[in-house]
Amino acid sequence: MTSEIKVETKPKIVVIGGGSGQPLILKGLKQYDAELTAVITVTDDGGSSGTLRDYLDIIPPGDVRNVMAVMSNVSPEFIDVFQYRFKKEDEMLAGHALGNLVIAAMAEKENDIFRGVQILSHLMNVDGHIYPVANEPLVLHAKFKDGTELSGEAEITAAHKVIDHIWVTPQDDSSRRVAQAPSEVINAILNADEIVLGPGSLYTSVLPNLVVDNVREALKLTPAKIIYIANIMTQKGETDGYSEADHVRAINDHIGSQIVDAVIMNTGEVPDNYIDWQKWNEVSTQVASAPEEVRKEGAVPITGDLLELRDDGAFHDGDAVAKLIMQIATGPDEK
């Protein structure tokens, strides 16, 4: 009689998002023995990223750069150089991060931004995979509750109006093509053990990835546990008055199915008068906790004090969140 040998494998975790929240979670997860894949939004049209996007017709490189910086295994001194941003008095280079220029150069050299990012990831000894959600810049569109519509992430954010729903199109949509993710993104989603959404701006960092047509379908089909990291603060003009359940409902409504299996929710309270509202003028109030409403959306609430107070603002404790993500990934499969 022979006994079976159980082979332990690394959990495959896909983190989908953009902005400052995604690198924070990836940095926490990097401490664990997991196979990480970052899927990154490509709708940013502001700042250095927006300028390079418009001039070179490439995906905005900023979010890719920040993810690459935390997933890389090169020296901290090298990362400091990669993240260096030119001073505002530097004329044509003003405001550009060096890493953005490097990513733009790789896109031009390879004549393919996706391949350029993969080669640069190898050169920077990235532990895991970094995949832009599309191989071309996408335009974000929003319809507001008052019936009006706007295009462009920066304009939508600046409008400070209540959003009904969003969608994306290729920047060059003259042929009315639909946005599509590369096969690597779809395969990562379908083969994942766990998919993490957020944290980050619901309508401008998280959902722009999920409404790409083949990503939406892959999320419906994947056997992976899908986890949403609920935001700590509402975002002015985007999610004013939203509870955690409202965020989940918006995700499920955009997908057309209750895909979220669990919601990681912060129980720590932001002290009154702690936040510098002028410095962090995009935030509004602390997100209302509603675990029972989350259950009605088909998701399991997973709670903990995940609050980190720093720089006069309220943020997730990346290490604490990563620990919960790993506990879910290695727990019993209930999906």
Score class of each variant (00 low, 15 high):
9 T>Y: 10
12 K>L: 05
13 I>Q: 01
15 V>R: 01
16 I>M: 04
17 G>L: 04
17 G>E: 04
24 L>N: 13
26 L>V: 13
27 K>A: 12
28 G>M: 07
30 K>H: 01
31 Q>T: 11
34 A>H: 00
35 E>R: 01
36 L>F: 00
38 A>G: 13
39 V>F: 04
42 V>F: 04
50 G>P: 14
56 L>T: 11
63 D>H: 01
65 R>C: 10
66 N>I: 10
68 M>N: 02
68 M>E: 07
71 M>E: 00
72 S>E: 01
74 V>Q: 10
79 I>A: 09
79 I>E: 06
80 D>W: 00
82 F>A: 05
85 R>M: 02
89 E>N: 06
89 E>T: 05
91 E>I: 07
91 E>W: 14
94 A>D: 09
98 L>Q: 00
101 L>E: 02
103 I>C: 06
107 A>V: 04
110 E>L: 15
111 N>W: 12
117 V>Y: 01
119 I>E: 14
120 L>R: 04
121 S>A: 08
122 H>N: 10
123 L>W: 13
132 P>W: 03
133 V>Q: 03
134 A>H: 02
135 N>C: 12
137 P>N: 11
143 K>G: 15
147 G>D: 11
149 E>K: 08
155 E>Q: 13
160 H>C: 14
161 K>H: 15
164 D>S: 11
167 W>D: 14
168 V>H: 06
170 P>N: 06
174 S>P: 00
181 A>N: 00
183 S>A: 15
183 S>W: 01
187 N>K: 10
192 A>W: 15
193 D>F: 08
194 E>F: 11
197 L>Y: 07
204 T>A: 05
207 L>S: 15
212 V>G: 05
212 V>C: 04
212 V>F: 04
215 V>N: 05
215 V>Y: 10
218 A>F: 06
219 L>R: 03
221 L>K: 15
222 T>R: 05
238 E>V: 09
245 A>F: 04
246 D>M: 03
248 V>E: 09
250 A>C: 07
253 D>H: 10
256 G>Q: 09
259 I>N: 02
263 V>I: 09
264 I>N: 08
264 I>W: 07
267 T>A: 02
274 Y>S: 07
275 I>M: 12
277 W>P: 01
277 W>E: 10
284 S>N: 13
286 Q>S: 11
290 A>Y: 03
295 R>D: 09
295 R>S: 09
296 K>T: 10
300 V>C: 12
301 P>Y: 13
304 G>I: 08
305 D>C: 02
305 D>H: 00
310 R>H: 01
313 G>K: 13
315 F>R: 15
315 F>L: 07
315 F>H: 05
316 H>S: 01
317 D>E: 03
319 D>H: 06
319 D>K: 06
320 A>V: 02
327 Q>K: 15
328 I>W: 14
328 I>F: 06
335 K>Y: 12
